[in-house]
Amino acid sequence: MTWKRNLEKCVRRCVRDRMELVPLLRMVLNKLASKMKLHVRLRVWVALATAYVLFMGLVHLLQIPLRSNTLHSHYDMSAEGVMKRHRALVKKEADKYAKAELQKSTAKMEKSKQVELLTDIFKKADTNVNGQLELQELSSWISIKTKEHLTLALRENFFMFTAIDQNPRNGVVSWDEYHYYFLKQHGYDDEFIKDHMYNHKGMPREIKETIMRDKAAWSEAARDNPDQLTIDEFLAFRHPESSHVTILNIVEEIIARLDIDGDSKLTEEEFSDPDTNQVPEDMTPNEYKQERIQEFKTIDEDESGSLDRRELLRYIDPRNVHHAEKEALTLLATADSNQDGVLTLTEVLDQSHVFMASKMVDAARSFHDEF
């Protein structure tokens, strides 16, 4: 055999080179052990293969079923069955988001719950664990919660759109489909919905107001057909802050309103002119102009002296950190009672109504109030 010849050559070489006996024996034993292990493995595999062949031959000869005829009989593998299960899973996921949205509202949270929530958020945002929130910590937390909300909004939009687009399933959502889904999520049964699809008599005032707001937002989001929305339009309807189309429309509106010379760019004078902008009641025109000049310099990334669409889009994008920094400054100015530049938990709780409506706590509510 080959391994024996190799072993003999090894022995002759060792003797010729006058190697010591112990290393020689060790080498011989290693060779033997290696070859024996290989033989054992080969014999095991041959035995297993033989047993498998004999077993399958016996099964074929006696026609023994390898699984029950009723196994997974409930699991419809047809195309229709697969789609049915897919729709059920999508509906379940969409219902989860809808119920979470109904339950997570902080607007009517009890005072004790507000204190508990704000305390928990304060501790999480206080990354250096010194019992104070600095501007950078507050800004970072708001930025994180903003990105979380925008990511969740995109995910929710897909599942909700797919779940609502049922009658018919045609890639668009009609107002009737959405309205039915909305009422269903608020606990109304099919018979009630059928009788009150267009007549909301008997419904709570809060739901009626929500329907009216939804109808107005629907009209703004619908670009082609006022009675139905595509998935992108549905995102603009449900979460305009996450929609690139909405942000682009805002930029176009700003340019159309402020671009006096019609060059599709905004100069510092055009951007900061109090006469073409809405000056807040708590600011003088000069104060407003100076603030807008500073804002202009922030937006003008290439320092060209004018703002183009790209710069405005990047600036208005809710993910831009300057939004978080601006809100953090506002919260700090509002709640920092001793003017030491940081916030304590007591200061936060003293202004709980301000923080509960901010992106620090409820990014969804804050965005929807803005848009």
Rank of each mutant, 00 (worst) to 15 (best):
T2G: 06
R12H: 14
D17I: 12
E20R: 10
E20T: 11
P23K: 03
L24M: 06
V28I: 11
N30I: 12
K31I: 15
L32F: 12
L32V: 08
L38D: 13
R41S: 11
A47L: 12
L48H: 11
A49R: 07
Y52V: 09
L54D: 11
F55W: 07
M56T: 07
M56E: 04
G57H: 07
H60M: 15
Q63A: 08
L66V: 02
R67Q: 09
N69Y: 10
S73C: 06
Y75R: 03
D76E: 00
M77N: 01
V82A: 04
R85W: 08
L89V: 13
K91C: 15
E93F: 05
A98G: 08
A98L: 13
L102E: 10
Q103A: 12
Q103M: 09
T106L: 07
T106I: 07
K113A: 14
V115G: 01
E116Q: 03
L117V: 10
K123C: 09
K123Y: 11
K124C: 07
N128M: 15
Q132H: 14
Q132L: 14
E134Q: 12
W141F: 13
I142H: 00
K145N: 11
E148W: 00
L150D: 01
L154G: 14
N157K: 01
F159K: 02
M160D: 04
T162S: 13
A163D: 05
I164G: 05
D165N: 08
Q166D: 13
N167P: 13
K184Q: 09
K184M: 06
H186P: 08
H186W: 06
Y188H: 04
Y188L: 05
Y188Q: 02
F192A: 01
I193T: 01
M197R: 11
N199S: 08
K208Y: 03
K208H: 05
E209C: 05
A221C: 01
A222Q: 05
D227P: 09
D232I: 05
E233R: 01
E233L: 01
F234I: 01
A236K: 02
P240Y: 00
H244S: 11
T246R: 05
L248K: 15
E253S: 05
E253Q: 09
I260N: 13
D263R: 05
E270R: 08
P274H: 03
T276R: 13
V279N: 03
E281N: 14
P285E: 03
N286Y: 15
Y288H: 09
K289L: 05
Q290M: 15
R292G: 14
R292D: 13
K297D: 10
E301L: 06
S304R: 11
S306Y: 06
D308R: 02
R310P: 02
L313G: 08
R314M: 13
R314W: 09
D317P: 11
E325N: 14
K326L: 02
T330M: 06
G341S: 00
S352Y: 02
V354P: 06
M356H: 00
A363S: 02
A364G: 08
R365Q: 03
R365T: 03
F367Y: 07
H368C: 05
